[in-house]
Design a protein around this nucleic acid. Structure first.
Length: 263
DNA sequence: TCAAATGTTTGATC
DNA sequence: GGATCAAACATTTG
């Protein structure tokens, strides 16, 4: 479920309920989602107060008395407050006032506690909503790969995913197969402006609910209704009416307008 | 039955 | 050695 706007929405829906709460008990049931020893992890978390809940790229970070808990939602992860019956609960946190359930059918998500900053978290590039135009243009110039793959690389910038990369490239009228380094300064600036605008707009609409994405309260987002190309293969481009094309690039379904977006 | 799905890691190959 | 690309992970849905 998760790209920057969805994770941001989850954090915003979670924070008022979790800040200041104490973890009474934590239980786990997936060795794919939780790679640490279940008993040890429960021991680390028991009695810890949650000081803050933050988004870091697509990660959700709980700052605790000691260290931090990093949660990545993968493709289908959901964090639910006081969930009645969730079909694929992989972790449950009992708090002093409510419970938090991590539900994830595909188990691509991860939950990890670290005394400092989790390694996976530390390796990420600047946040897509924080990187300056100059820094972005400069960094893009140094990449030989296709712009779609580069934007998806979380070490390059963190937060963008398949939906918002396709939408941003369409808005900036850049072909997803274009080589990053060969995108000129003007078009690179246009691309930066496009993803910043789209990410902010998507946050306002509480993210895109493509299949089953919901925030911590079980609410769906509505930005999927505003998608111009993602999931719209064969439908007319909003700019020129040409049917939107779908190809596979960087091993992801990639949607673009063959007329508006040129290499 | 087959294809595809909001993502990342790992290993091979340049 | 760094960068880039394909395969793998597990499950559901159309």
């Amino acid at each position: 479920m998760p790209e920057l706007p969805e994770v941001e929405t989850v954090v915003r829906s979670l924070a008022p309920h979790l800040t200041g709460r104490t973890i009474l008990e934590a239980s786990f049931s997936s060795k794919l989602v939780v790679r640490q020893d279940f008993g040890e992890l429960s021991g680390h978390l028991r009695g810890q107060q949650i000081h803050s809940v933050r988004r870091h790229g697509k990660f959700i970070l709980f700052d605790l008395d000691q260290g931090s808990l990093a949660i990545h939602l993968g493709m289908t992860g959901k964090l639910l407050l006081d969930a009645a019956g969730s079909r694929h609960a992989r972790a449950v946190f009992e708090l002093d006032g409510g419970s938090l359930t991590y539900d994830d059918p595909r188990q691509f998500g991860r939950i990890e506690w670290d005394a400092g900053v989790p390694v996976r978290v530390a390796a990420l590039g600047p946040d897509a909503l924080a990187i300056s135009v100059e820094e972005f243009v400069e960094a893009l110039r140094a990449r030989r790969g296709r712009v779609k793959a580069v934007l998806l690389d979380q070490r390059f910038i963190r937060g963008l995913g398949n939906i918002y990369v396709d939408e941003a490239l369409h808005a900036a009228r850049i072909h997803p197969r274009a080589v990053a380094a060969r995108i000129g300064g003007e078009r690179a600036r246009r691309l930066h402006a496009a993803f910043v605008r789209i990410l902010r707009l998507a946050i306002e609409h509480k993210g895109s609910s493509i299949s089953d994405y919901v925030d911590a309260g079980g609410n769906r987002g509505s930005f999927q209704l505003m998608h111009q190309v993602y999931g719209r293969e064969g439908e007319p481009c909003g700019n020129c009416g040409t049917p939107v094309r779908r190809i596979v690039l960087a091993q992801r379904g990639t949607h673009y307008c063959p007329r508006c977006q040129r290499v």
